[in-house]
Amino acid sequence: MHIVVCVKQVPDSAQIRVHPVTNTIMRQGVPTIINPYDLFALEEALRLRDRHGGEVTVLTMGPPMAEDSLRKALTFGADRAVLLTDRFFAGSDTLATSFALASALKKIGEEFGEPTIVFTGKQTIDGDTAQVGPGIAKRLKLNQLTYISRISELDPETGSITVERRAEGGLQVLSTRLPALITMLEGSNEMRRGTLEDALRAARAEIVTWSAADAGIEDLTRCGLRGSPTIVKKIFSPQPRSEKAEAIDTTDLSPDEIARSLMGALFERKPDLETDLLHFAATQFDQEVGHG
């Protein structure tokens, strides 16, 4: 079974600063990390491989330095890494990104075997659109399974798969046929620590690096800025909430008194909340009162 996991290198949101004057990202010293959501996808892929055999390929589109993230993915135990990098990709929006990745996935299929499952993370922490996964699925006609919290059954032979999907207000149990595109829900697993062997292999591994042409992309107008129907016209930093949290006065008050004044302040700001809580209470405390 061949599994491909799309991972993106993103700036660590914790470290991002905005230039107070020019309002642009101050990239100086902002470390990059693997998009945290993608690690859940990668770990799930590795588990499937360990259980059913096969290979895991990680794929990223980004600048040459995105290689670091790919190597990192290899230290966790991925078998192969593909870096899709080309100046033509600069400024891609989700449509252009999914086009480029879908093209690379086709090429990967030809070179290293058709993927049975393509994983993406739920979303990125910089783009944060959760659209690239569905975009890839549509372009490659893969059965789309988003927000998956658990893969309960998978049979590579018959190509059937059953998953639990986080839907609005409930859990959907879905069954479909492979090949499929799965976007993994956060918190659904814990990333492993690779062995020293994995780490050594990763450090020396040859990263497959493709330009647009290598990935078999002819129509460059579908890539990067030119291939992006959306255009970012304006960037600005959010109005910083000037006023800090209003602190409840605690001077020589007992915890109980503080608690009461907090509750007061709280209901004052949200009267509707109080009403609803009383409704809730009505259903809750009955038995309780009954007892005593």
């Binding site: 949101s13 991002i16 016209k233 960037i235 930093s237």
Partner: peptide, 14 residues
């Protein structure tokens, strides 16, 4: 919002 909410951007599909 973008970049984890550190920035806002206005986007068009012209």
């Amino acid at each position: 919002p973008t970049f984890g909410g550190s920035l806002l951007c206005t986007i068009f599909t012209l």
